[in-house]
Computed example of a mutant assay.
Amino acid sequence: MFSCSSWWVGHRVGRSLVLDNRWKDKSVLALTITPGVANSLEVREVPAPSPEEGEVLVDALSVGLCGTDVEIVAGEFGAAPPGQDYLVLGHENLGRVAEAPAGSSLVAGDLVVGIVRRPDPVPCGACAAGEWDMCLNGRYTERGIKELDGFARQQWRADPEALVKLEPGLERVGVLLEPATVVAKAWEQIERIGRRAYFEPRTVAVTGAGPVGLLAALIGIQRGLEVHVYDLVTDGPKPALVRDLGAAYHTDSLQDSQVRPDVIIECTGVAPVILEAITGGGQNAITCLTGISGVGRKTPIDLGDLNRTAVLQNEVIFGTVNANKRHYTAAGAALAAADTSWLERLITRRVSIDNFRDAFDQQDDDVKVVLDFPEVQS
């Protein structure tokens, strides 16, 4: 392991970025894996971020962990940058600007989040239109996931347009922005689909009370809707988090609860739950799938009945993943409008980067686990 005094080698300065070669002789410590190799997680020295990676230098504050990170650590997913045999982990992120170019609207000390997905180099029509979350050819890159180093390192860089500035009051919870973008995008698409006809939703069902499900419920409450959240656990933080939002918490199934929602947001990726979600809506229901399922298991289904119900009830079922910049902006507004103390309770464990292995040791009461970095002293 290492001490906090050895962790940080950089310092923050309040001046415009000078693109010189001083970074070449420096290194930073980063949390890395070898793609495709299970349990290769380690902290290692890597070269300091090059100015070619972006004009803004950022000191890392936090990275959040999710199922994608677990899959990458297990060797099931992830791709290193070209010419590199390791990948710096971390896509859920929060940092503080150390250096920024003049005229960028960012200054040293600003709280920022880096956008995960970057457009493909061609680019395709969607990426060219700024809709890189809907990339058509799969040549996008993703920080900490696909061919771009992530944010779990002392310092990282990005261009100003790949950063979202947050309000200072979100310092303890801003790391939730990236998962919040998933449901900000989901709600945007639900609204767009709803405009196909008369749309006045009153009731929302959210399956799964993990971070994404809880944030989906939060936005539903902010929209003035009646929200029902479904999960299996009967104790721990989840029931109270849901009820303190003003939503209803269910441990029975959607079908058994007899709730007929106008909108369903599925956040588990569990096949039987997905099946119930896509068959449990009311007339003209819209069902959004955000959870990613494992493959290889078969779930019995009467496809004819599913088709008949969907057609006769004018239902829409769609999937969504990732987000573009306007979704980050919308998610930032949702976090800023939320009760910060409630958001802090959603982060159930904060682990120092010194003890990074503990963060991957799942505990029964975990909702969101966050790795914290010691902040650079001025």
Rank of each mutant, 00 (worst) to 15 (best):
W7Y: 15
G10W: 06
R12T: 11
V13F: 11
R15D: 13
L19G: 00
L19Y: 01
R22Q: 05
W23V: 00
K24H: 00
K26W: 07
A30F: 08
T34S: 14
P35V: 08
N39V: 00
P47K: 07
P49R: 03
V56S: 08
L61V: 09
S62Y: 06
C66W: 00
C66E: 00
C66D: 07
G67P: 01
T68C: 06
F77E: 14
A79W: 09
P81L: 10
P82T: 13
L87E: 06
G90R: 05
A98H: 08
A98Y: 03
A100P: 11
A102C: 07
S104D: 06
L106P: 06
L111W: 07
L111T: 08
G114A: 15
V116H: 05
P119W: 08
P123D: 05
A126P: 00
A129I: 00
A129Y: 00
A129C: 01
G130N: 02
D133A: 14
K146N: 12
W156T: 01
W156G: 02
W156L: 05
P160A: 04
K165C: 00
E167W: 00
L170M: 11
R172A: 14
L176M: 15
L177K: 14
E178D: 15
E178F: 11
E178G: 10
A180Y: 06
T181Q: 06
V183Y: 02
A184K: 02
E191W: 12
R196Y: 08
R196W: 07
E200A: 13
V206I: 15
A209W: 10
A209P: 15
G210Y: 12
A216Q: 06
Q222R: 03
R223M: 01
E226H: 03
V229S: 06
L232G: 07
L232M: 13
T234F: 05
P237M: 12
P237E: 12
A240D: 12
L245A: 03
H250E: 13
T251H: 15
L254C: 03
P261I: 05
C267D: 04
G269W: 03
V270Y: 11
A271H: 03
V273H: 01
L275S: 02
E276G: 02
E276V: 02
T279S: 04
N284W: 01
I286R: 01
V295G: 08
P300C: 04
L303T: 04
G304R: 03
D305C: 01
D305Y: 03
L306P: 02
Q313A: 08
F318D: 02
T320H: 07
T320D: 07
T320M: 12
A323Q: 11
K325G: 03
T329R: 12
A331S: 04
A334V: 11
L335T: 08
A336E: 15
A337S: 15
W342F: 13
R345F: 08
L346N: 05
T348L: 08
V351K: 10
S352D: 15
I353T: 09
A359D: 07
D364N: 03
V367R: 02
V369D: 04
L371R: 01
P374R: 04
E375K: 09
E375L: 09
V376S: 12
Q377A: 12
